[in-house]
C-alpha cells in the first residue's frame, strides 16, 4: 500500500514536470501507472510508465504515401513478403496511387514492420503497449476514464460495432483528457511490443493444451475482468504476427519526452 502511494506521488510529480514540450501534432502523456490486464505470477500489479509524447491522431494514407514515395522498398509491389503479407496496402489503387482511399483517413493494411519503419523515418517510434494503454485509459474530461460513465459507454459501443466499410477521417474523434484522439472508435493500432500479449484458451488459463503452449500460462490472471474493451485489445494483439496486415489495423507514433 505504501509502495503504491509512493508510486502515485512520483507519477503525479513526474506528470507536472512533463506537462511541457510536446512536438506539434503530439500530446504529452504524463508519467503514470499502468495496470496490465494480464500479468505473470508475482509480477507487479502496477507498472510505472515514464512520461512520453504520442501522436494526437493515427498516421494517415496521405502521410504514408509521402513515406513510400521516399522509401520505395515499402511500396506495395516492392515490399518483401517477410515484412508484409499480400494484403499490404491493398486498399490503394497502386504503389503511389491511393485511389479511393482518402488522404485524411487513417492508413491501414500496414504491417508492424512498415509501421516501425515509418516511425523511424519521422525520428519517432511505436508506443509500447503500456504507453498506449496508459494514454487510452484517459477519459474525455478526467485522467481516469474508468470513472467517467460517458467515456465508458462510448468505448464499449465501438468495440461492439463492426468497422464501417469506409473509415472516418483520422483526428475527427473526440479528444481525450490529454488531447489525443481516436484511441477508441476508429481503428486498432500496432504497439512496439504487441507480441508480449500471452493469451490462454480461456481466462482461467487452465486448459492442458494452453498450459503446454505457454510457459507460465497457468499463473496468468486478469486484473479487471470487467474491462471488456481491454480484453478485446489483448486478444487481438496476441493473435497478430509482425507481417500481418488488417483492414482496420493502423498505427500512430510515440516519442520520449
Amino acid at each position: 500500500m505504501t509502495r503504491r502511494l509512493t508510486l502515485t506521488i512520483i507519477a503525479i510529480l513526474a506528470g507536472f514536470c512533463a506537462a511541457r514540450g510536446s512536438e506539434p501534432g503530439m500530446a504529452a502523456i504524463p508519467a503514470t501507472i499502468y495496470r496490465p490486464l494480464f500479468r505473470a505470477e508475482k509480477a507487479p500489479r502496477d507498472l510505472p510508465v515514464a512520461a512520453f509524447q504520442l501522436d494526437v491522431r493515427p498516421v494517415t494514407n496521405g502521410e504514408f504515401l509521402v513515406f513510400v514515395r521516399e522509401n520505395p522498398k515499402w511500396q506495395r509491389s516492392k515490399v518483401k513478403g517477410l515484412f508484409a503479407d499480400e494484403r499490404y496496402l491493398t486498399h490503394w489503387a497502386g504503389d503511389l496511387e491511393p485511389g479511393n482511399a482518402r488522404p485524411e483517413q487513417p492508413v491501414t493494411n500496414v504491417s508492424w514492420f512498415a509501421a516501425k519503419a515509418f516511425a523511424a523515418s519521422q525520428g519517432k517510434r511505436l508506443p509500447t503497449t503500456a504507453e498506449w494503454e496508459a494514454a487510452a485509459g484517459a477519459g474525455f474530461t478526467v485522467v481516469d476514464g474508468s470513472t467517467e460513465k460517458e467515456f465508458q459507454q462510448a468505448v464499449t459501443l465501438w468495440y461492439g460495432t463492426p468497422s464501417p466499410a469506409l473509415l472516418p477521417d483520422a483526428g475527427t474523434g473526440r479528444a481525450n483528457f490529454f488531447g489525443v484522439r481516436d484511441l477508441h472508435g476508429l481503428i486498432w493500432e500496432w504497439t512496439s511490443d504487441f507480441n508480449s500479449a500471452l493469451v490462454t484458451g480461456d481466462a482461467r488459463g487452465d486448459t492442458g493444451l494452453e498450459r503446454q503452449l505457454f510457459c507460465g500460462a497457468g499463473s496468468l490472471g486478469a486484473s479487471d475482468p470487467g474491462n471488456f474493451a481491454a480484453f478485446m485489445r489483448f486478444g487481438f494483439r496476441s493473435s497478430l504476427r509482425a507481417g500481418y496486415t488488417v483492414h482496420n489495423l493502423g498505427f500512430r507514433c510515440a516519442k520520449d519526452l
Binding site: 505473470a40 512496439s192 507480441n195 500479449a197 500471452l198 499463473s219
Partner: peptide, 24 residues
C-alpha cells in the same frame, strides 16, 4: 529479439522474478 520473435510468432513477457512467460 522482439523482431525475430514477432516473425516466428513467439510471444513473451517478463515477470518480476525475471522469468519470462513465453510461447513454446
Amino acid at each position: 529479439v522482439r523482431e525475430l520473435a514477432a516473425l516466428l510468432g513467439v510471444n513473451y513477457a517478463e515477470d518480476a522474478r525475471g522469468q519470462f512467460a513465453h510461447t513454446n
